[in-house]
Simulated assay, not measured.
Amino acid sequence: MNVGIGLPIADPAALLTWARCADAGPFSTLGLLDRLVYDNPEPLVALAVLAGATTRIRLQTEVLLAPLRDAALLAKQSATLDRMTGGRLVLGLGIGGRGDDHQVSGVDMRTRGRRLDAQMAVMRRLWSGEPYGDGVGPIGPAPARPGGPEVLFGGFKPAAIARVGRWGDGFLAAAPPSWAGGLFDTARASWKRYGREGKPRLVAQVNVALGPDRVVDDARTAMAAYYAFTGMADRMVAGMLTTPAGIRTAIAGFADLGADEVMLYCYGRDPGQVERLTDVV
């Protein structure tokens, strides 16, 4: 079972410390959230900086809101980062649920799913070295990984998870073990429906905070602010794991469901959590 760390977004300058500590430890991946109308770092820019401060750990968008971006430019940006990191990029993609994010980017929320499907068709073509079309040639550079960086799709509805089999390499489940099992089964069914060989990569996410009360309180405050738009922030914060035993139990639960990796997502800013989580895993 691989274990990664989801990075806090409240203090971008501190992320270099987080990344270096995680790269020196047992962790497999660094994850970073995406929002537009929020005080968070842009994930592709931030991960590019963190790539230069690390040597082995993977860099994952969790999830990048693809419909807010131009497909050709996103294909070029992600291929560049994948190439320059030796294939360490994992492109987690989703459609997003905030109206303000879509408003400022000029994207109609009602068509964001169809837009993502169209974007994937373009990006897969460009990553394979094919021309853009309509007399326009290829857009490089070629990614390190043939066919493009690994793509995971996040979501909860069947239409979202269906993209795993059609366009993706795996599924990202931001859900507890009690709920993730059904989502994993849906992702596996999508994979079979599209005649894919092997099996999809399954990645779980769980929110954690380890440390003294100030660290846990900081994490809860940050998470509540981030999810305030859902109207369910209190319930989501209540699910945050704050003990080593709770985190180990969750990891074991995801392993039993067949997850390939668990992302321990941190909202608290204290980088000392990396060392504490190292002791847990």
Rank of each mutant, 00 (worst) to 15 (best):
R248Q: 08
Y267N: 10
L257M: 10
S105G: 09
G113L: 06
A252D: 15
A162G: 09
T221Y: 14
P131D: 07
R269C: 10
Y38S: 12
V104H: 04
Q205D: 11
Q119L: 02
A19N: 02
A13E: 10
M236T: 08
G94N: 03
P131A: 08
G165S: 04
L68M: 11
D134A: 14
F229T: 11
K157C: 06
P212S: 12
L47P: 00
A14E: 13
A22D: 04
P138L: 02
A173C: 09
T278G: 07
A259H: 07
N40P: 03
Q77V: 11
M123D: 02
V45L: 12
I95N: 09
A209W: 04
D101L: 02
L50K: 01
L241I: 12
P26L: 03
E130Q: 15
W167F: 15
N2K: 14
T186V: 11
F27Q: 01
P212R: 14
R114V: 10
G135N: 05
A238I: 10
R124Q: 08
L202P: 04
G195C: 04
P158Q: 01
A121L: 09
V122W: 01
A14F: 04
P138I: 06
T221C: 08
R201M: 07
P212D: 14
A121S: 09
L50I: 01
L64H: 06
G86V: 00
T230V: 10
L183K: 13
L47D: 00
F229R: 14
R35F: 05
T221A: 12
R112S: 13
P41G: 03
L183Q: 11
M232S: 13
F153N: 01
L68I: 08
D217T: 14
L73Q: 10
A121N: 07
N207E: 14
D217L: 14
A118L: 07
